[in-house]
Design a protein around this nucleic acid. Structure first.
Length: 356
DNA sequence: AATGCGGGGAA
DNA sequence: TTCCCAGCATT
């Protein structure tokens, strides 16, 4: 019996590659071995579904066809093109990496794992992906798909987000790597996980490797992979002020160390609970910003905006035009220049609705 | 080892 | 609602 299982494991990669060749999606980055283009696609696809990232890939590839054109961009330009995709540090790190490649690699994007891993925003997964897809360097990728496929196929109970689990899954992926064609093997593993061995309702009925699969044989696909607890959700209440002056809007540039770093939003008072307008304007922090109590024109309903780790309850308060002194370093932006600024999703939706 | 960082699609 | 997606950086 054990020998039989080992036999299945030996042809596991071949079966997946065969399945991949017959069922793969036609995606633009699968037609190139250009490390720069592969890097573009891989970073965009970090924690992001293919369907969501695809339009962004096209836009970036068109606007920045070379690493040097990317390196010459401003951070605001990159963030603007990244707008709506989330995890904006990816965009900021890409710019750092692009400039590093331009300045320290002579503008040729690295293709070897050991070079790639040193770059900003490139971790073990992305380095292995770029190296194997571009020059077939034998590095096994381990992403969410690979965790799931291996956990189910081998019946691994170790939590995928524990330190021991990460080491175990990386080692296991290395063992299974097809050394003849690492790039194809990696693509096949991930496509298989994304299309067939899905998180919910995996298509075991048409699975080419189910006969050797622990989870299929033991009916355990719903309990594998194992993942440790979830994080606590923080509740935050954002009171945004809309103050317009002729053809300008008072805007705020966000700092580092919080969500939406270096992006733009409106003047903001954050509270830990939901306050009435009266309570809000009685706050010392609010008074600090306005020399006199602003007149409220309209006040929106509180809208919930869900992030992975926090829930934002956002309210927009439109303030009447009056000769109040703005004491904060907020700045007026002309309406026609708003479209150049990188905006968070809720701010974009609000301004888009307000102005159009 | 634990936490922060977006937004959206699927069930 | 809950899960999780071609993860990484920081502390």
């Amino acid at each position: 019996m054990l020998n039989q299982l080992l036999l299945y494991h030996m042809i596991f990669s071949d079966e997946l590659v065969k399945w991949y060749n017959e069922n793969k999606r036609d995606l633009p980055w699968r037609h190139t071995t250009d490390a720069y283009m592969i890097w573009l696609s891989e970073v965009i696809l970090q924690q992001t579904r293919v369907e969501q990232g695809l339009p962004y890939f096209y836009r970036f590839a068109e606007k920045y066809p070379t690493i040097n054109s990317f390196a010459a961009a401003d951070e605001a330009d990159i963030l603007k093109l990244w707008q709506g995709l989330g995890y904006y540090s990816r965009g900021r790190n890409m710019l750092k990496t692009a400039r590093m490649v331009r300045d320290e690699f002579g503008g040729k994007f690295p293709e070897r794992y050991d070079d790639l891993i040193k770059l900003k925003g490139i971790g073990e997964y992305t380095a292995a992906a770029i190296a194997s897809f571009s020059v077939n360097e034998p590095r096994a990728v381990v992403d969410g798909n690979v965790y799931r496929v291996l956990a189910r196929y081998l019946g691994i109970n170790e939590p995928i987000n524990s330190t021991a689990g990460k080491k175990l899954f990386q080692a296991t992926a290395n063992d299974f790597l097809n050394m003849k064609n690492p790039g194809l093997h990696n693509q096949a593993m991930m496509e298989f996980g994304a299309m067939l061995c899905k998180p919910k309702n995996p298509a075991c009925g048409i699975c080419p490797v189910r006969i050797g699969c622990y989870a299929f044989v033991h009916n355990a696909t719903t309990s594998l992979p194992v993942k440790l607890s979830k994080l606590k959700i923080k509740q935050r209440f954002f009171n945004y002020f809309l103050f317009t002056d002729a053809d300008r809007v008072l805007m705020n540039k966000r700092g580092e160390g919080d969500i939406w770093a270096n992006m733009y939003d409106l003047p903001l008072i954050e509270t830990s609970t939901l306050l009435s307008p009266e309570e809000l304007f009685a706050l010392p922090e609010t008074k600090k910003h306005f020399s006199e109590r602003p007149e409220i024109v309209t006040i929106s309903d509180v809208k919930k905006h869900v992030l992975t780790h926090q829930h934002l309850y956002i309210r927009f308060i439109t303030i009447a035009k009056q000769p109040i002194e703005i004491k904060q370093k907020w700045g007026f932006i002309k309406v026609e220049n708003l479209e150049k600024l990188p905006l968070s999703k809720p701010i974009f939706l609000f301004l888009d609705n307000f102005l159009n």
